[in-house]
């Protein structure tokens, strides 16, 4: 449920690091808590994101949640497929359900994030 090659934050986003580019999505726990996702509002390529600040919104039938960026940097790619098929976030949160790719400003921020085991322990306390 929580792939080992990803890092996680307390707002339930995951981060996949490839060089100085990170891919960001929401965790299995987050998609399960939300229920069926019906709408994802994402920023545009070129927009700046800041660690701890919102970069978009995600809505299920019952609720709306803000998406928080775990890192600071510039958006270089956005998953446009989610506007037509937001349910992919539920079906494949770590794969086709990714949201944005960010070119990192400061790789030291990654040290603040949790490894899979840490995140799993964090989630079991929250559930």
């Amino acid at each position: 449920m929580y792939p080992k090659d990803l890092k996680y934050d307390k707002e339930h986003e995951w981060v996949k690091v490839e060089g100085d580019v990170v891919t960001i999505g929401i965790s299995h726990f987050a998609q399960d808590q939300l229920g069926e996702v019906v709408y994802v509002d994402l920023p545009s390529v070129g927009d700046a994101v800041t660690a701890g600040e919102t970069f978009g919104e995600i809505e299920s039938v019952k609720s709306v949640s803000e998406l928080f960026s775990p890192v600071t940097g510039e958006i270089i790619e956005v998953n446009d497929g989610l506007s037509d098929a937001p349910e992919v976030v539920n079906e494949d949160p770590y794969g086709d359900g990714w949201m944005i790719k960010v070119s990192l400003g400061d790789t030291a921020e990654l040290d603040e994030l949790m490894a899979a085991e840490e995140y799993e322990a964090f989630v079991s306390e929250e559930a």
Binding site: G35, E36, V38, S60, V61, K62
Partner: peptide
Amino acid sequence: VQYSGIID
């Protein structure tokens, strides 16, 4: 509030 999911 739900079992399998609201849309289902």
